[in-house]
Design a protein around this nucleic acid. Structure first.
Ligand SMILES: [Zn+2]
Ligand SMILES: [Zn+2]
Ligand SMILES: [Zn+2]
Ligand SMILES: [Zn+2]
Lengths: 151, 151
DNA sequence: GTTGACCTTAGAGCCGACTCTAAAGTTACA
DNA sequence: TGTAACTTTAGAGTCGGCTCTAAGGTCAAC
């Protein structure tokens, strides 16, 4: 028995909103196999599997553009190689690694800033964070610690 | 001698485009101390220092909104505490850490996917990446390795 | 006095991935 | 027959941080 799902049912099954599903369709990622006379979308099991593929790929970090490529491989595996697949995956990993490096550097900077500042209720006249940002020095291993009321 | 810079000169000194400087002004981050009769912006040394503060903060990962707060502390240090500063910084660090966690998870997933696939010129009929995405299984420590032409 | 490099403004466009709206048509059920 | 809960579409809005355009005004050099 071929069970056809309406968009809200597909939405329930996949956890993607009907808006998002229509958005994916508009961008060529998915499609309803059939439409009712009134134009209502109806999805087959195979459609559901495709949507789940998209969702899993999305959760794995792939962009819609990546996924579009992965999908064309998926529907015609014979015409594509494993290398085609790893190329997409590796490129994505490279992007993720680049972004990670950037964020790690920010993390490091912010941690240094936090270590340098007392974080107390004293006024910020000699705050080392403000001073560090003022000095443009944010990548040094140590900036001076501000000492409030040191004798 | 008070040396006044035109916007293109400030742009050169800071490495920020004139467009960006005007954008920052529109958003309340910076301002030209004076204008010529014709309306040209002129920046003082103090303006330059403020712009450099913004730039350094930006490079450290702060959003323009964060920076806006940091700037109001900077111009009136007496009215703010070190804690005000660390609150902003800690909040930003939390955001960065959250994003890092997300990206690390993606990195892990993508690495697993890449390990599982031979990446070779064989056709993708049994590609384990495609299969993993199809199965919705992307977070397991091992998915099956595809073996092309194994005997 | 004319070229060309600058400056001004308001406002549009871009990126990605949604998210939502409005206005209209359809369906299920009482 | 009514009404509530769907569905459809095109298109606009959102986020942040720029980036660019158009149409005009200014300025220095030759
Ligand atoms: Zn302090
Ligand atoms: Zn401090
Ligand atoms: Zn393979
Ligand atoms: Zn493969």
């Amino acid at each position: 028995m071929e069970e056809l799902l309406k968009i809200s049912e597909l939405s329930e099954q996949t956890g993607l909103s009907a808006h998002t599903l229509r958005y994916y369709e508009k961008h060529g990622l998915i499609q309803a196999s059939t439409r009712s006379e009134a134009g209502y979308r109806f999805y087959t099991d195979s459609d559901v599997r495709r949507v789940q593929f998209v969702k899993t790929a999305r959760n794995s970090g792939f962009s819609l553009d990546d996924i579009s490529q992965l999908l064309s491989i998926r529907v015609d595996k014979e015409s594509h190689s494993c290398q085609d697949v790893t190329d997409i995956t590796q490129k994505k990993l490279d992007q993720v690694n680049a972004k990670l490096a950037e964020l790690h550097s920010m993390q490091h900077t912010l941690e240094l800033l936090l270590e340098s500042c007392c974080g107390g209720p004293e006024n910020a006249t000699h705050c080392s964070i403000i001073e560090a940002l003022d000095a443009g020095v944010v990548d040094k291993e140590a900036f001076g610690q501000a000492r409030h009321e040191s004798t």
